[in-house]
Amino acid sequence: MSPALEFGDVHLSYGSRQVLNGVSCSFAPGEVTGLIGPNGAGKTTLLRLALGLLTPTAGACTLLGRALRQWEVRDRARALAYLPQSNEAHWPMLARRVVALGRLPHEASLERLGGADEEAISRALRRCDASDLAERRMDGISAGERARVLLARALATEAPVLLADEPAAHLDPGHQLQLMRLLREEAGRGTAVCVTLHDLALAVRFCDRLLVMKAGRIVAAGAPASALSDKVLAEVFGVGALRLHDQGGRELLLVRALEEG
């Protein structure tokens, strides 16, 4: 299947500082692709390139087969949904109205929501197990509930590509697992899901493919077990790992300090 989002030999520098140094990668429909790497590796920069917030110094970004810079702003907003890292809505609006913001690319406004918009909002809330939160205020629900509502906001756009920046940060383990499961389900509906993660155990468990970044380059890519080899773990993160397998034969990763190895 042709990739939904593709970067071809992308370079980006701020002044003399090279932030991205020849990144080539792609994100396929129906897959959860994990973008991992230490702080400053260029993960968020890559997401901001896809959003059109940054322009590459060299190289090509392609969204659904068309060069990103050829997209009309509104069309791009319908094709590419973005879930930022912040787990906050700045005003304590009702959850359903926050989710409704995801319909803005569809020529809707909060004052003017059509039947199709309302259906998409309800569907997104349902998919995120957040239907019962619809009439609650954002400051009256827990961090885990807020994360689900904000994911529903991103899903309400019904875009074929979803970028999520550290969606599991700030969440307790139970809510982390729940959020990652919801992202998997979204990929199951055919969406190309790209997610940046710091938690390697979550990355291995929930992603179909991993892209490991270091200093503006992709140093390893592929299925989680092969991308996160012991060598990559040591070189990129300075850690070792204990590898376990669950009953289904799926690999689980337990990170530990190298000297414990």
């Binding site: 901001r48 959003l51 059109g52 917030l53 702003v73 509104r74 791009r76 907003a77 319908r78 590419l80 949904a81 973005y82 879930l83 930022p84 912040s86 809505a89 700045h90 005003w91 609006m93 926050v98 913001l101 995801g102 803005l104 690319p105 406004s109 909060l110 004052e111 904000l150 906001r153 756009t157």
Partner: peptide, 21 residues
Amino acid sequence: AGRGLDALTLGEDAAHSLGID
């Protein structure tokens, strides 16, 4: 600028991603 202000509730990058200038 009303629609943009609503979108800004989610932060500037998210507002941009929703097609707001």
